[in-house]
Amino acid sequence: MILTYIGIFLVSVGVLFLFLGALGIVRMPDVYTRLQAGTKATTLGALGTIIGVGLIQPEWFWKTLIIAIFIAISNPISSHALARGSYKSGIKPFLKDDDGIDTYADVEDEEVDR
């Protein structure tokens, strides 16, 4: 019984963070900052909802745990691939003022292609 309540709590927190992630995607100025909001908030959101479901239905718990581990590993990798792909296709990051720093711009393309 107590597990059900913890599960419901986790699912609610997860849904809240998923919502904040979506809000971040609307409000942020460029693709990289949107990825920041997208990856972080959706990781905790997805972990919360999935493990919460596992606690509400205890016989699913181990399955949900394995799915959560896969998400925790694959989510940052996909966001890295999206960020790197956007940069290589020529999207410059949004910088607040002229002296904003972007060290990746100095990297030669051949170096990146290794």
């Binding site: 963070f17 904040l20 809000l23 971040g24 942020m28 909001a37 908030a41 949004f94 990746y104 711009a105």
Partner: peptide
């Protein structure tokens, strides 16, 4: 760190002034 980062992002997203100063560092 994951939980902290989520509250951090949540704070930035919700505040009307959108307090960000992005850049790429090595």
């Amino acid at each position: 760190a994951l939980i902290k980062s989520n509250f951090d992002v949540a704070r930035r997203v919700v505040l009307p002034s959108l307090p960000i100063n992005p850049g790429i560092v090595t």
